[in-house]
């Protein structure tokens, strides 16, 4: 095995890990604030990617503005999902499974709508730094991928500070941990839940606009991203923003190493088996009990 190959696989694992982590981050944000496992997190990313793509293609906006548009679109979809799907389900006493299933229905809807209105094409989208790559010992990493990693780290740290330092973040946590108690001290619990979904949608939007230039936009991508993100979030611990990124990195790197050292055909078998083993060996998640239970 050459050094180039090893480094290339590390870079690929790292990039994919942050991609999975960003999706997982959105899942963990929403879980943290509402105790809902959102099966349409990848579709938030899809919507954001499409919005950004249209903004860049049709309106000819600069990349950063187009990306911002995508993130706003993600937040709006998050808001709509909370209003149209989550709230009515909970009002009628839907169980956890019902909540999972309405978001799954939402995911089907987004994917079907994307095929219907956006088309069956895969679309490539320009990223930061165009298509330029950096050379690392003859291995290549897209400049955009470096941006993705940097922004992901910024987002995680910002989320951490948001929950720990700001009154709003604290209110969101309080509303989630003890809704009745929070209500008695004057926290508007429903609004906190809406905000949580908007925040989750925005994080999904960040993921969408950052991921799309790397993997192209396609109507089927939402659920695939969700599955990877779900894995990342659960392995890392649902309650901790860092957890999702850690879980994502673990998954990305295991996949890359499985390809290099074992066989690309069995990549998913290896990654998934390892995942099951980790869960059995560490029943509290990678970041320990507090990490998993969260809040």
């Amino acid at each position: 095995m050459t050094t180039t190959l090893f480094i290339q696989s590390l870079l690929a694992g790292l990039t994919n890990g942050f991609v999975y982590g960003l999706i997982g981050l959105g899942i963990s944000v929403i879980f943290r604030g509402t105790r809902v496992v959102n099966a349409m997190q990848g579709d938030f990313a899809l919507v954001a990617g499409i919005a950004a793509c249209l903004a860049l293609d049709w309106l000819g906006l600069p990349i950063a503005v187009g990306f911002l548009g995508g993130i706003i679109a993600g937040a709006l979809v998050g808001w709509a999902v909370e209003l149209l799907l989550i709230r009515p389900t909970q009002a009628r006493g839907g169980s956890e499974d019902s909540l999972l299933l309405v978001t799954l229905g939402g995911a089907f809807a987004v994917s079907a709508a994307a095929l219907l209105y956006f088309g069956r094409d895969s679309r490539s989208m320009p990223g930061f730094g165009g298509n330029r790559s950096l050379d690392v010992f003859d291995a290549a990493i897209r400049v955009h991928a470096v941006w993705l990693i940097a922004i992901a780290i910024v987002v995680v740290v910002a989320l951490r500070l948001f929950y720990q330092r700001t009154p709003l973040g604290q209110s969101i946590l309080a509303a989630s941990i003890d809704p009745e108690g929070a209500a008695t001290i004057g926290i508007n619990v429903p609004r906190m839940r809406t905000l949580t979904f908007m925040l989750g949608g925005a994080v999904g939007g960040v993921a969408g606009v950052l991921v799309s230039p790397l993997i192209t936009i396609h109507y089927e991508m939402g659920l695939l991203l969700t599955l990877k993100g779900f894995t990342a979030a659960i392995v890392g611990g649902l309650g901790n923003p860092f957890g999702a990124i850690m879980g994502g990195l673990l998954l990305g790197l295991v996949e890359a190493m499985a390809i290099v050292f074992v066989s690309s055909g069995y990549k998913d078998v290896i990654a998934m088996s390892l995942l099951i083993l980790i869960m059995i060996a560490m029943p509290n998640g990678l970041l320990g009990r507090r990490g998993r239970v969260g809040g």
Binding site: L5, Q8, I215, L225, V260, S264, K267, D268
Partner: peptide, 20 residues
């Protein structure tokens, strides 16, 4: 010879192996 699943979003590790 490197393989990847249908719908894979990134196959750069497999591609790197081919390149090597």
């Amino acid at each position: 010879v490197e393989k990847f699943e249908v719908g894979a979003s990134d196959v750069s590790t497999q591609a790197a192996k081919v390149r090597a």
